[in-house]
C-alpha cells in the first residue's frame, strides 16, 4: 500500500464530494437567478448535508430494514467509484487500467438501481410507484447510452477512457463522422438529465405527483447519503461527457507550454471550468426550462427519437471508421 493509494482511497472521494456539492451549489444559484430569485448561498448544499447528518434516521415499520439502510451506501459507493474512473484533464484516472467504459456504464446503472431497490424496500406506495418509474426510465435510457459508448469503441477500437481522453475524438474522424458524433453528443445530452434524475426526467421523484417518490421514506443519514451520491454522480456524469467529447487541453487549445507542476494545476482548473460550463448548459439550463414528462412520454421519447438519433450517429461513425 503506497501513499498514492491512500490518497486515492481517501482524498479522491473527499475531493469528489466537495466538488459535487460545490457544483450543486452553483447549479442552485444559477437556477435561482434564471427564475429572478436570489437563491441560496453557494455553500448551502454543505449545510444541507450537515443538517441531514445530525437528523434522526427513521426506518418505516413495514420496510425491509437492511436493504433500506444498505442501498444509500451502495449508491454513494458506486458514485464514488465512478469518479475514480474519470481522468481529470491530463491527470490520469486513479483506477486506470482496472476497467473501462463498460464498467462506467454499469456503475451508472448501479446507482439508479440502488435507488430503485431502496424505494421498493421502503414499503410505501409513493416509493413503490417511484421505484417502478425509475426502473422503466432506466430501461429506456440505457439503450441510447450504450449506443454512444459503442460509437466510441468503434472509433478508438478500445473501451479505455484514458486512450479516449488522450486524443480528441473530433480529430480522428472526417465530416461524416462529425455529424455522427454530433448526433451521439445530442443523444448523450438528452440522456444526462434522465441519468441524473433531473427535470424534465425526475419522474421517479416527482414532488407533486408522488411526494418525492423513491426518497419519500428516507430521512437523516440515509437521505444525506443519497443527496451526496446525487451530487457526486452529477459531477461525474458531466466530467465523463467532457472527457469523451471535449478532452481539449489548455496547452493544446491556446498553444502554450508550461513547466510540469504548473501545467497540472492549470489543466486541472481548465478541466473543472469545462465541466462547469457543460454542467450549466446540460443540467441547470435544462432543468430550469422544462416541465416534467409523464413516464410513458419519456419512455417513448427515449425508445423512438433518442434511439433513432443515437443509432443514426452510430451508423455515420461506423461508415467513417470502417
Amino acid at each position: 500500500m503506497t501513499l498514492a493509494t491512500i490518497f486515492y482511497a481517501i482524498g479522491f472521494p473527499l475531493l469528489g464530494i466537495i466538488l459535487g456539492l460545490l457544483y450543486k451549489g452553483i447549479d442552485r444559484k444559477i437556477s435561482a437567478r434564471m427564475t429572478s430569485r436570489i437563491g441560496p448561498p453557494i455553500r448551502q448544499p454543505f449545510w444541507d448535508v450537515g443538517k441531514l447528518l445530525i437528523k434522526e434516521t427513521v426506518v418505516p415499520e413495514n420496510a425491509v430494514a437492511w436493504i433500506f439502510n444498505v442501498m444509500p451506501i451502495v449508491a454513494l459507493a458506486s458514485s464514488m467509484t465512478l469518479l475514480l474512473y474519470i481522468p481529470f484533464g491530463i491527470i490520469k484516472a486513479p483506477l486506470e487500467g482496472y476497467g473501462d467504459l463498460v464498467v462506467i456504464l454499469y456503475l451508472l446503472t448501479l446507482q439508479a438501481l440502488a435507488m430503485a431497490i431502496g424505494g421498493f424496500s421502503a414499503g410505501s406506495p409513493f416509493a413503490s410507484v417511484g421505484a417502478q418509474r425509475e426502473m422503466i426510465l432506466m430501461m429506456s435510457y440505457e439503450m441510447p447510452l450504450a449506443i454512444v459508448i459503442t460509437g466510441f469503441a468503434l472509433i478508438y477500437k478500445s473501451f479505455s477512457l484514458s486512450t479516449i481522453a488522450l486524443t480528441p475524438v473530433w480529430t480522428l474522424v472526417g465530416p461524416v463522422g462529425w455529424i455522427g458524433l454530433l448526433l451521439l453528443l445530442a443523444a448523450l445530452l438528452i440522456v444526462t438529465p434522465a441519468e441524473l434524475a433531473k427535470l424534465p426526467f425526475d419522474i421517479a421523484e416527482a414532488e407533486t405527483e408522488i411526494a418525492e417518490g423513491l426518497l419519500s421514506e428516507y430521512s437523516g443519514r440515509n437521505l444525506a447519503l443519497f443527496y451526496l451520491s446525487d451530487a457526486v454522480r452529477s459531477f461525474a456524469m458531466v466530467a465523463l461527457e467532457v472527457a469523451l467529447f471535449f478532452p481539449f487541453t489548455f496547452s493544446q487549445g491556446f498553444g502554450l507550454q508550461f513547466s510540469e507542476p504548473v501545467s497540472y494545476i492549470i489543466e486541472g482548473l481548465w478541466f473543472l471550468a469545462k465541466v462547469l460550463i457543460l454542467y450549466i448548459l446540460a443540467v441547470t439550463l435544462v432543468r430550469t426550462s422544462f416541465a416534467r414528462f409523464r413516464i410513458e412520454q419519456a419512455s417513448r421519447l427515449f425508445w423512438t427519437y433518442v434511439n433513432i438519433m443515437a443509432l443514426l450517429g452510430l451508423i455515420l461513425v461506423a461508415l467513417e471508421v470502417m
Binding site: 437556477s31 429572478s36 424534465p200 430550469t288 416541465a291 416534467r292
Partner: peptide, 12 residues
C-alpha cells in the same frame, strides 16, 4: 405549472 414540475414558470 408547478403541478407539472415547471417551477421556474411558477416563479415567473
Amino acid at each position: 405549472a408547478h403541478e407539472i414540475g415547471f417551477d421556474p414558470i411558477l416563479f415567473w
